[in-house]
Design a protein around this nucleic acid. Structure first.
Lengths: 151, 151
DNA sequence: ATAAAGGAGACTAGGTTGGTCATATATGTG
DNA sequence: CACATATATGACCAACCTAGTCTCCTTTAT
C-alpha cells in the first residue's frame, strides 16, 4: 500500500486524458471522472503541468490536455513525479543509496534491489496509450452516475 | 520507500538470529547488531514473538531465538507481519480488494496487480537460511565497532 | 463588463511513524 | 532468600505526512 491517493488520482487523471484522445478537459470535468474533490484535482493538475505532463489553457473553455503522445507517457514517469524513489527501502535506491548500519554483508539489500527492479520494469513498460486502449474508451465512476463516460 | 524502519529492523533482527544459528541472543545484543535503540528492539521482538517467529526465555541469560528453521522463514512472512498488505494500492490486494471509483474499465488495476505479484514472488522465494549464507556469517555495524560480529 | 476557467499558496485535521518511559514479572546464581 | 539480569506490557509522545480545504488572483472568450 505504498501508492498514495494523490498518485492514484494523478494516474487516473492522465488515463482520463489519454482516453479523451487529445480533447481538452477542464479540472471540474476531470475531478468528476476521477471521483476526487475538484480543489484537490486542481492541485494535482498543477503538479502534472509543472512536470510537463499536461499543458493548460486559461479562460472560459480552457482546460488541460496531454503534452505528449499517450504512448510516450509511462506509468513510471507519473509515479515518480508524486512518489520519488521507487525502491522499497532507502538503502536500495538506484542513485545515492543510503549506507545502512550493516551494509557489509547485509544480504537483504540485494532482495530489496530485486523488488525495486521488478517494479520499475513493469511501470516502465506500461504506457498510457496501452492503458487507454485496455480501458475500452469508457468507464463508470461508481456511485456518481450510472452512465459511462465515453470519449 | 514503502518498507518502514520497523520492518527493516525486524528483518535485520531475524537475519541476525539466523546468522547466530540457533544461539540465543538477548534484546540488547540484538539492538547493537541491528543498530537500533534497544527499547524499540524489544517492542519489535514482542511482535515477532506474538507472530510465532521467535521464542523468548526470561531471566538472566534469557533472550530470543528463532522458532523455526531459517530455511522455513521467508522474507514475505516477516514483511507481512509489520506491513500487512503487499499490494501497492488498495484496489489491487489479493483478498477483498477495495472497489475503486472507476473499477469498470480501469486498466491501472491490472498493472498494480502485476507489481504486487512480482513483489510477492521475490519475497516468498527468499528465506533466511539463504540470506544468512549470503551474509557470510558476519557483518560490520557501521559506526558502532570496527570488529565484525561473527557467529 | 462579466463569467468561466486556470494559478498560487497558505492553512489544517487527523493519522502514522518512530520511538521513549515506567513498571511489573520471571528466573538463574550464590 | 536476595539480587541481578532478563523479558512483558502498556501508556505516552513529538514530529512528520497525507489528503485535503480555502481564499484570493489572473487570464480570456463572449
Amino acid at each position: 500500500m505504498w501508492i498514495s491517493r494523490k498518485t492514484d488520482y494523478a494516474t487516473r487523471a492522465v488515463l482520463a486524458l489519454a482516453i479523451a484522445d487529445g480533447q481538452r478537459l477542464n479540472a471540474q470535468d476531470l475531478s468528476r471522472r476521477v471521483a476526487v474533490p475538484d480543489a484537490f484535482m486542481k492541485q494535482i493538475l498543477m503538479q502534472l503541468r509543472d512536470a510537463g505532463v499536461v499543458r493548460s489553457e486559461r479562460g472560459p473553455s480552457g482546460g488541460y490536455r496531454l503534452n505528449h503522445d499517450p504512448a510516450d507517457i509511462t506509468l513510471e514517469r507519473i509515479v515518480r513525479i508524486f512518489q520519488g524513489q521507487l525502491a522499497p527501502i532507502e538503502c536500495a535506491t538506484r542513485h545515492e543509496p543510503q549506507p545502512c548500519s550493516m551494509e557489509i554483508g547485509c544480504s537483504l539489500r540485494t532482495v530489496w534491489a530485486e523488488v525495486r527492479d521488478a517494479t520499475i520494469a513493469i511501470l516502465e513498460r506500461t504506457d498510457f496509450a496501452t492503458l487507454a486502449a485496455q480501458s475500452g474508451g469508457s468507464w463508470v465512476p461508481v456511485g456518481l452516475t450510472t452512465k459511462p463516460y465515453t470519449v
